[in-house]
Amino acid sequence: MKKYRGLLYLLPAFLFLAVFLIYPLIDVFIYSLEEGYSSASQQYAGIGLYNYQYVLRDPYFTQALINTVLLVVITVPISTGLSLAIAFLLMRIEKLRSLFQTIYFLPYVTNTLAVGMVFMVLFKQTPYSVGFVNMVMGWVGLSPVDFIDGPYWAKMFVLCFYTIWVVMPFKILILTSALASVNPMYYDAAKIDGTSSWRTFYKITLPLISPSVFYLIITGFIGAFKAYSDAVALFGTNLNSAGMNTLVGYVFDMLYRDGGGYPSYASAAAILLFAIVLTITVINLMVSKKYTHYS
């Protein structure tokens, strides 16, 4: 009995994991294959791939897929590049560095929903108020646009803008700590050789911090594919009618909200999302293996 005492300590964690992680993981695949499942009667008509076909033919799913892919393709490179630049600039100063780091990290601890509403107010244009962003655009002679209820590109722009604002703290933090751990000896050597600062960055710094950069690219792809709360904060819960739904939003709308009550469709969509994310992650890992420098 004493031999198994260790298991006793694991028991609470395993109970939680079994009920809320392992069982659901198996169950979601079963759900996705049960055709015509009804929550009310808990019965289904048959087994097959109909749910996947339905989801793939659903125009809302297509819209969500397009929105999500656009969001990923736009925000991941911009946020990674921008955070790299900011982290690099941060390392060039010594005074006030910790103050800047604290400020830059602030969005990480704020409620995505709550601050998203501030962005909504900043970008919104109503008959009574032009809104801050439109006012600034007016100063440089641009015509006003309603970013919240207006044209698609404008809504996409705010969503990307807010997403980048939200993900920057994490990336800046990871990259500054990666940069701080680079041995200064390399820089001294480069200086003695008279290497230009751009060349130093490109040939020394970047390879040395490449594991962190690829870590951020991989987690960035995963995170951006799972975007949802940011869109809700900006456009409200009815994302389908706003044309701004994301894949995760589509899953939850199918499960619960206005069009909800279809766990089978939700499961099929969630598995499709997971398959996409897994494929992209595997590709990312293969690419990073080729280019990452591990010292």
């Binding site: 994991l17 009920v19 809320f20 992680l21 392992i22 069982y23 659901p24 993981l25 169950d27 979601v28 759900y31 929550s39 995963i222 799972k226 995760v248 899953v251 939850f252 499960l255 619960y256 766990p263 939700a266 499961s267 969630a270 598995i271 999302l273 997971f274 994310v277």
Partner: peptide, 16 residues
């Protein structure tokens, strides 16, 4: 288990 995304298990948890 760390690799399991929350979005996959939320559906069954909701039903449970």
């Amino acid at each position: 288990l760390m690799m399991i995304p929350n979005e996959l298990v939320v559906i069954t948890n909701f039903q449970t």
